[in-house]
Simulated scan of single mutants.
Amino acid sequence: MARADTLARARTLDRPDLAYLVRFPAADGAGETELTWAELARDTDWVAARLREHGLTAGQRALLTMSGFEGFWGHAAIGALRSLKVTYGIAEAMGWDHRRTSVFHRELRPHAVIGLSAETLEGLSGAADLGELFRPTAVVLARPAAVPMLRAVGVPACLFSPLGPALALECPERAGAHVNAAEWRIGERDGELSVAAGEQRASPLAETPLGVAGRVVAGRCACGSDDPRVLFGEADQLS
């Protein structure tokens, strides 16, 4: 049977609502929740809208750095890039894979680099000037520990980070990383962040402390979004 026929047959099969069993780092160890296909589709649409705000559009190229265990976050990011018709390459967010990040960056000349980690930057810094490498890149979205490293060398990086089962993504205003308020409730207690399922979420998740230092900023952002914004520990350096 030809591959096209196989795929056509597969699309006629019933598919369970459940897409992922999600395990994520929490203050008391590992938190758990479920993720349905409908929720994943909404997460993907939300990420696509945030990337569109950064100017990503059809025909551009992007480099995504995500680790294998981040599959459900990565799925939303990949789906968003596909929906925007942005060509992408993928490298691990671990330091040992920094050479692949370097090669992709050189060969793709991406409009955007998404998910840069401090470990990747530490690996790259031994062979390249981080400022020279990433200043020409129009959009740089980096993990909380990587943002101050990039801003220190003149790269106007924005925040991009898993936050429990949610995803936090900063807009071009660089006033904190937005979290989808329709899907998640983000809280703060004693300087640490928590997450719970929002009203639209079918998969239950009680308020779960994440053991992540940060604070929540409410109110409308200058970009026009009413989604809450998160400032992560040392990444709270708006400039």
Rank of each mutant, 00 (worst) to 15 (best):
S203Q: 01
A41V: 04
D14F: 09
A138S: 13
H54Y: 10
E192H: 06
P144C: 02
M66Y: 14
S102F: 10
W37K: 11
P156S: 05
C171D: 11
L51F: 15
R229K: 08
R185F: 00
S203W: 01
W37M: 07
L81S: 03
R151G: 02
G55K: 13
R15M: 04
A2G: 13
A177F: 01
E92W: 15
F134V: 05
L84C: 05
E170P: 07
S161P: 10
P162E: 04
R135K: 13
D227C: 08
G123Y: 14
W184N: 03
M1P: 12
R50Q: 15
L150D: 10
T101W: 14
H178S: 09
W37E: 09
L231R: 06
T44Q: 13
A196G: 05
G131S: 08
G191W: 03
G115Y: 09
S203K: 00
R135N: 07
Y20R: 12
A222S: 11
P16A: 03
A62E: 13
W184D: 07
V212G: 03
G198F: 04
E183L: 15
V230K: 11
A58N: 05
V147L: 03
S239M: 11
L108R: 14
V22M: 02
M66P: 06
V217E: 14
Y88P: 12
Q237K: 07
L141D: 12
T6N: 00
R143P: 01
P144E: 05
G55H: 12
V153Q: 09
G74M: 13
